[in-house]
Design a protein around this nucleic acid. Structure first.
Lengths: 151, 151
DNA sequence: CCCTTGAGTTCGGATTCCGAACCCTAGCTG
DNA sequence: CAGCTAGGGTTCGGAATCCGAACTCAAGGG
């Protein structure tokens, strides 16, 4: 995370935003959630330069979002797999996807579908109130500064 | 969106990922959702260079996520406000925040709280099945490629 | 008139990114 | 066993971005 200074006002939005808002990182995670695991596969799927890929994979491993693991195929290979922490980013990616479906959908429609593995239903993401259960939008939420209010 | 080629495999995850995964963009949106609207306020709150801020605000306006509007204070000012399309990114930001709370929380805890405006309850984001209503994780979801399967 | 403020623009130097070439190790091939 | 190939990187020079600081420009204010 080269530009963590970007988020030096320690905040639980800006820290992850600084990490994920780095070129390629979100794309890389998308690819990981689609099942890509090997260096070569990331490289060809995303058409990213090898040096930058090395670096990004490295940061994500450092951050504990991916785990680098050797395994025996016909010979020793390495794979990058999502950790618990990484898998926990799923809502972010799905939210991105839902937004993309709605606002940036290419004419041919999305390139893959998501369904509930057991019942086959569509997947959704919702911001909701843990108290009353209502589904909320930005306007229904009140922000309360806790420390030195940010400007 | 300088590096849209990054996402030329047209996909409703990679398009937004390429847009938001650009340095500063997510931070800028966080700031916008916190209520920042003016050039100067963004600049000082995020400590971003003015030229890059100009450019980022520009792309977000082009993309229809922000709207630039003149208004009369003591004199004519400009503000950048979230459009409908922009507001609709809220789940992404909240998902980021939730993940940050869980995995990157600084010792002092988060710097602001979110509550349901009407009932005061906590805010959550969940991936769920629109069919059966279950809350899902990445492992509960099946991916079905629709076009040329991406490697 | 001169000063200040908001909102940018411009510019030189520092970073980061890119593509292409190179390296190293294991297994296979003959 | 010499040589070839593939996966997974590293290195390098040039191109694209980013940064901080200074400059611009218009509208009030004193």
């Amino acid at each position: 995370m080269a530009h963590v200074k970007v988020a030096d006002e320690l905040c639980t939005v800006s820290l992850p935003a600084a990490l994920l808002g780095e070129r390629w990182t979100l794309l890389l995670l998308r690819q990981a959630f689609l099942g890509t695991r090997r260096f070569e596969d990331f490289q060809t799927a995303m058409d990213i330069s090898r040096s930058v890929l090395t670096e990004r994979l490295g940061t994500l491993v450092e951050e504990g979002i991916l785990r680098r693991e050797a395994y025996k195929d016909v010979r020793t290979r390495y794979e990058y797999r999502l950790t618990e922490k990484g898998l926990d980013l799923y809502p972010v990616l799905v939210a991105l996807r839902k937004w993309g479906d709605r606002w940036m959908s290419p004419d041919e429609g999305p390139s893959f579908d998501l369904h509930h593995r057991t019942c086959g239903g569509d997947i959704g993401v919702h911001v909701s109130c843990e108290g009353c259960g209502d589904v909320l939008t930005a306007r229904d939420v009140r922000v309360t500064p806790l420390r030195d209010s940010p400007a």
